[in-house]
Amino acid sequence: MQVNVKIKRFNPEADKRPYWAEYQLEARPTDRVLDVLNEIKWEMDGSLSYRRSCAHGICGSDAMLINGVNRLACKILVKDLGADIRVEPIRGLTVQKDLIVDMEPFFDAYKAVLPFFINDDPAPAAERYQSPEDREIFDDTTKCILCAACTTSCPVFWTNGRYLGPAAIVNAHRFIFDSRDQGADERLQVLNQPNGLWRCRTAYNCTEACPRDIPITKVIEEVKRELLWRRA
């Protein structure tokens, strides 16, 4: 099928402001948007820049704003979008070139919530046992691939870059509710800052944007309640 692709492009060395570039090409309905972008870059315009790595929806490199919704270019098919495809960089982070944004603020927020296992007890001989029920509590949040689709769909993050954002809270949740972990108090202290957890206004954009189907808003509310019960 013939597709009409509009891409918001920006080259900081040549352009004053972003502009829309249009490309017409043949694509199969079962092609992914990433295939279409590859076709444009490899066959039509080599200057187009975007991130991609695994191309199988697990590395989290190619989150983009596609037809108004944050998604992974390697997961959305052409037939699900129709003949008109509009691709923009994810919002709220500085565009470096075309569809590539500066992810550093995103990862700074991620690092701030100590997203690693904290347990100072000596490791037992066999294993740190965890029941299947205890593992189930934080199962959803283990699925995050740090693609930033949630954080950059958040209207609070767009205007307030100091907000940690949904992705950081999701990754804090993954360890706060881990029965083997002992760092919950430190993480909750970070999240209890004015620009930590409390800027969330439950807009639900993050939940809709997540390519891993993590119920992010529900997760954030669980962390809020945990803070409430611990501090009350």
């Binding site: 202290q189 004015p194 409390w198 501090r231």
Partner: peptide, 11 residues
């Protein structure tokens, strides 16, 4: 520094 003021306002 950590205060519970934002938590209190949320409640």
């Amino acid at each position: 520094y950590s205060s519970n003021s934002e938590l209190a306002w949320w409640v």
